[in-house]
Amino acid sequence: MSKEVLYGLYNDEEDLLHAVHAAHDAHLDIMDVYTPFPVHGLDDAMGLDESRLHIGGFIFGALGLLTAFLGMTWIFTADWPVIYGGKPYWSVPAFIPITFELTVLFAGIGMTVTFYIICGMGPGVINKTLDDRITDDKFCIAFDTHDFEETGLDKIKEFFSSTGASEVNIKTL
């Protein structure tokens, strides 16, 4: 499923932010924006929702907490109760360190794996990029040409030249 992308490159994140705002005002539907580093304010300008990744982190953490605590509880009270140092079988304070560690471990691994999956990334994955300089010093706004079949691409080209894009190209992804 290839799509033809018309994209413009900007030299500065300030120009990029102005352009994204301008595109929003002109009701131009941006496909995506690519930058060499996180530009603050960009998600608001593009109207992106807040990431829900941290909710996933919480759920994974809760899972780790329950796994550790219930696991130790089951082992030490039901599966193989042993008295250590005269303490009760269910010695809750002694379970705290491992419960904490597994909470962190599950949250960290779960969130990171989720991140790579929802971003379509991972070992061996190769995603085509529009321009090699996007990871260097260029800031890119991309439009899917399919969205502009009726109105024509001139509108976008005009948009790029009026917002100060240094280059405009078409590429098939």
Partner: peptide
């Protein structure tokens, strides 16, 4: 590089991930 593209949404999630990992680390 795991197929990194620099997409705005990916950066947003990347920052969210970094912040939470920092918080639990």
């Amino acid at each position: 590089s795991f197929g990194w593209t620099g997409s705005a949404k990916h950066w947003q999630r990347w920052e969210s991930l970094s912040l939470v990992l920092a918080g639990i680390a």
